[in-house]
């Protein structure tokens, strides 16, 4: 780790100004950034600690749930408004990391965390994300945890978050502030696919800061389930995860939302499967059809071929669990 300076501004304006100079970065919980700095993956000359900014509120306004970007993962998971209106988000949060990490990690930091691909973390190995044009170490290497959707030979890493999978399913919006003012980004457009710029994880502009996430009102309060399949029962990243939310009335699925984690460079929505479920009865057979549609475009690598069947099975399982609560 290199020597760096550290500032702790108390206003949004000061924070955005502070980050514009000296190869600076924001730090909130630091659960990922500190590891990256210790490993020499990220070298920053200045850290702008944003923990004193007033971005810790959770409120319901005209049905829209506003979540400040500094809300801790643990607080958000247990918040009454979240548990009542968006239980899928609560489930996803509790499936992530460990209690100790959730106690430190913030909403904005969770969105900004980097992939856990080993090749990204080991500075002696090739990685286009860490060091553009050095090659993808995982492509011909150990890729059991890697992407089956939306990847290319530049990068087959996956986004590690659970929370983001639920937020993608719930059509959240990201609020950001920057030198040029404020703007909104649909959650599903926030993270990127690798394309030709695998070094970029998301569409946040230079020196912009996430200030909040907003979730619109919905009817996904009853038939929801977040399924996380992992190598150990807690504190492990997903092999695959599924956020399933159904709005079932009169025995018919009025609306369906499906998103997956552990399968792509971003939280992976499954619009075709959602479409296949809409207007149908919540039956095992319909779930099977939707799951098969969802995984049609999967492309696997040497060690992750199991993920296609696992993803298909997990979607069905999540839908079944969502309807049997």
């Amino acid at each position: 780790m290199n020597q760096f300076s550290y500032v702790r501004p108390t206003s949004l304006k000061a924070a955005i100004e502070a980050v514009a100079k000296n190869n600076a970065r924001f730090i909130a919980g630091g659960t990922n950034l500190l590891d990256l700095m210790k490993n020499g993956v990220i070298i920053s000359d200045k850290l702008v600690d944003i923990n004193r900014l007033p971005l810790k509120d959770i409120q319901l306004d005209n049905g829209v749930l506003h979540i400040g970007s500094l809300v801790l993962n643990s607080d958000l998971a247990e918040h009454e408004l979240v548990k009542t209106h968006h239980p899928l988000l609560s489930q996803a949060l509790l499936a992530g990391a460990s209690q100790q990490l959730r106690n430190m990690a913030t909403v904005g930091g969770n969105m900004m965390q980097r992939t856990r691909c080993s090749y990204y973390y080991d500075t002696t190995m090739p990685c286009n994300k860490r060091s553009p044009n050095s090659g993808c170490g995982a492509l011909g290497g150990i890729n059991r945890m890697h992407a089956i959707f939306g990847a290319n030979d530049n990068c087959i890493a996956v986004h590690p978050s659970d929370m983001c999978v639920a937020l993608a399913a719930l059509d959240a919006t990201v609020l950001v502030s920057g030198p040029k003012g404020d703007r909104h980004i649909p959650f599903t457009d926030f993270h990127r696919l690798p394309g030709n710029t695998p070094q970029l994880d998301n569409n946040l502009g230079k020196n912009e800061l996430i200030t909040a996430v907003e979730i619109p009102a919905n009817n996904f309060t009853k038939n929801v389930y977040y399924l996380k399949v992992r190598d150990r029962a807690s504190y492990a990243f997903a092999l695959v995860s599924v956020a399933a939310a159904l709005d079932i009335r009169d025995g018919v699925i009025q609306q369906a939302r499906l998103a997956m984690g552990g399968v792509a460079h971003k939280p992976w929505r499954l619009p075709d499967a959602e479409k296949a479920l809409t207007g149908k009865a919540p039956t095992v057979e319909n779930f099977r059809i939707a799951a098969n549609i969802a995984t049609q475009s999967a492309k696997t690598y040497k060690h992750n071929a199991f993920k296609t069947a696992l993803a298909t099975n997990s979607i069905q399982t999540a839908l079944l669990k969502a309807t049997t609560v």
């Binding site: 856990r116 080993s118 080991d122 011909g140 150990r232 029962a233 807690s234 504190y235 492990a236």
Partner: peptide, 24 residues
């Protein structure tokens, strides 16, 4: 897990090398 191309471990930390936790 070793990546034999490099002879290096790819999960040399407690997040990726899975020691059983309480939940297991």
């Amino acid at each position: 897990i070793l990546d034999h191309r490099f002879g290096r471990f790819v999960n040399n930390n407690l997040a990726d090398y899975h020691v059983a936790v309480n939940a297991d």
